[in-house]
Simulated scan of single mutants.
Amino acid sequence: MPNSVPTVTVPDLPNGATLLDVREPDEWNAGHAPGALHIPMGELAERLDDLPPDAHLYVICRSGGRSARVTQYLNANGWDATNVDGGMQSWDALGHQVVAEGGADPQVI
């Protein structure tokens, strides 16, 4: 990427970090971090008002590619955002809690 994107690994996320999950609804429904905010990448431009205005956002997707693009976009538009490298795959692999919608067994897809 031409511009560097601020990045953090899952183990280095600060306690109480505001996670913004930009995956598609089927990925979110299958399994996501508890307390994360869900705005699919394709809906972000029209849902900027849904973002907490003063929070530092930690942007997460499955592996870190989509979230890096969203982080770059947010930082260019006045937000304070950091990409979560490794995404939900890393989150899950490190044993962090994953919850699913509708009572299904949570999984990262």
Rank of each mutant, 00 (worst) to 15 (best):
N77K: 05
V84R: 02
N29F: 06
G102Q: 15
R62W: 01
T18Y: 09
M1D: 11
R47G: 07
L94T: 05
V108E: 02
G103D: 03
L20G: 07
A104S: 12
R69G: 14
L51C: 02
D92C: 02
H38Q: 15
I39R: 07
H96N: 15
R23T: 12
R66I: 04
N83L: 08
P52Y: 01
D12L: 06
V108R: 03
P40A: 13
V22T: 06
V59P: 07
D26H: 14
E46M: 11
N75T: 09
E24A: 14
D80F: 00
L44H: 00
G16H: 10
D105R: 10
C61V: 14
L51Q: 02
G95K: 07
G103W: 01
W79F: 15
V98Y: 02
R69L: 13
L37P: 08
N77P: 05
G102M: 13
M41H: 10
E46H: 01
P53F: 04
Q107I: 00
V70M: 03
A30V: 09
G64L: 00
M88D: 06
Q72T: 14
T71P: 02
P34T: 02
E101H: 08
V22Q: 12
P52C: 07
G95C: 10
I109R: 12
Q107T: 12
V98A: 02
R23C: 07
L20A: 12
V70G: 01
L37D: 04
L57A: 08
G78P: 13
Q97P: 12
H38I: 07
G86T: 03
G87W: 04
V98Q: 09
S90F: 01
D92G: 00
A36K: 11
V98R: 09
G87I: 06
M88P: 08
R66P: 00
P53L: 06
T82I: 03
W28E: 08
H96F: 14
N77C: 02
A104R: 13
E24M: 14
M1N: 11
V10F: 06
L57P: 05
V8L: 07
N29I: 04
D85P: 00
A76R: 03
H38S: 13
S4G: 01
E24C: 05
R62I: 01
D12Q: 13
D105M: 11
H96Y: 12
D85Q: 12
T71R: 05
E43D: 15
V22K: 09
T9G: 09
G78F: 07
L19V: 04
G31M: 05
P52M: 06
Q72Y: 09
